[in-house]
Computed example of a mutant assay.
Amino acid sequence: MTGIDSVQLEQVIVHKVGNPSRGEELKLSLNPLTLNDDMVRGLLTKYFLGAFNENETYHFTHLSDVNMNEVYTFVRKIFEERESFTEQSALLAQFLYSKSTHVKVKEGELYVVKFNDVPFEGDFIRAVGIFKSETKETFLKVFQHGPSWEVIQEEGVNINKLDKGCLIFHTNTNEGFKVSVVDATNKQNDAQYWITDFLQVTPYADDYHNTDKYLSLCKSFITNEYPEKFDVSKSDQIDMLNRSMEYFKTKENFSIDEFTNEVIHHQEVVDTFMDYKKNFESAKNFEIQDEFAIHVSAVKQQQRAFKTVLKLDKNFHIYIHGRRDLIEKGVDEMSGKKYYKLFFDEET
């Protein structure tokens, strides 16, 4: 998140949340932190807010009524009743503790935070943050001991690496607020307790969501399903990755019919892609629309994940940016080794 210099850190409380299946405890704090040091406030603000992408928004949900979503209810009370902060933070910790039974869930500190003047959608608004630190790192501390210096090791939290976070903006209250989410650990489906079991949030079906998820779908299909179902080389995969990204970079609007005609071409591959899309949506528990305005920020974000490097043993890396017709693949009859032949006009 950018522009956080003006953010006001109003209250912070920390609870210790273990994994009950391992006999670890829940330890609740009775009072918020005393934050008199402006430098500590600044470091905490950066730690809490630095990892969020405010373009990707979610909202709280429930099968029957959003008012039955526990986290939504506790946070709404914090927004509405200032004096309820400590009590509601304890309820959040207790609820998280009840959802932390998976074997991969680690013990950690749960921070509940009240913010003011958070930049969001052209305004500065109130927000509540829920953060969990699970990963501890070893640091060396150098200190003076008489006329000499000594070194000891200490364990602590790296303020540049937020493990889990949820930032709830005080807007769209009746629709489940607008929420940003971070989950940097336990990304396997069987351990996604933070998003699925605890928060129970789902993405807003906006242009950012559709663009971001469609590019994720394309990358997953081309990397996994395409080579499994069809006899294609790595360079063919990279070529389709390039065409997919080029489509999103040059078009203003997405159309599934146009995309499949211009990028995928062959009807058999198109049919396989459409089946894969249905399974992808079902597994991720969201729907991607077939027509939407392409969001530039989502394209830039996803472009980092589109790797178009052809790695040949440990000797060569070939960066392919386009023109699949200028690459030939073959097998040398004498040595039995595979080769690529590249055609070009100038060497630079």
Rank of each mutant, 00 (worst) to 15 (best):
F85Y: 02
F306P: 09
E70R: 10
E150C: 02
K278A: 12
A184I: 02
V66Q: 10
L215E: 03
V299W: 01
I288P: 10
N67H: 06
F343T: 15
D65G: 06
S6Y: 05
Y193W: 01
E109S: 05
C166Q: 06
L199Y: 01
S233G: 10
E328C: 08
Q94K: 11
V17S: 05
G156K: 08
N285T: 12
L199P: 03
D197W: 05
V75M: 05
D290W: 00
E137G: 06
Y193H: 14
K141Y: 07
A298F: 09
V66A: 10
M334G: 03
G50P: 01
N31F: 13
V12Q: 04
E252R: 09
A283R: 11
S216Y: 06
D212V: 03
D271C: 09
K16E: 12
I168C: 04
I288V: 15
Q188L: 08
Q267M: 07
G122T: 05
L342C: 06
K337W: 04
T73K: 11
Q192T: 14
Q289N: 13
T173K: 13
D231A: 07
P119Y: 02
R82L: 10
N186I: 04
K251E: 15
N285Q: 15
D5F: 01
H102P: 00
G146S: 13
K99H: 02
R22I: 00
F139S: 04
V7H: 10
S84I: 02
D231N: 10
D163V: 11
Y47D: 03
L28C: 13
H102L: 06
Q8V: 15
R76A: 07
T101V: 15
P32I: 02
V112H: 08
N172P: 00
L44H: 08
E54K: 13
G129M: 04
I13G: 09
R76S: 07
A305N: 14
W149C: 11
I130Y: 06
Y339G: 07
E81L: 09
K314E: 14
L30V: 08
M1T: 08
K178M: 12
Q289H: 11
D332Q: 10
K114H: 01
L92H: 04
P119L: 06
N160F: 01
K338Y: 09
F306C: 12
V118H: 00
F143Y: 14
K104R: 07
T173E: 14
A127P: 11
V75K: 06
N67Y: 01
V12N: 04
Q192P: 05
E121I: 07
M39Y: 13
V232Y: 07
E109V: 10
I294M: 06
C218D: 15
H209L: 10
M274T: 07
K141T: 06
L241I: 03
H15L: 02
F52I: 13
K161E: 13
E281R: 08
K141A: 00
D190G: 01
E81N: 14
V270F: 05
A191M: 00
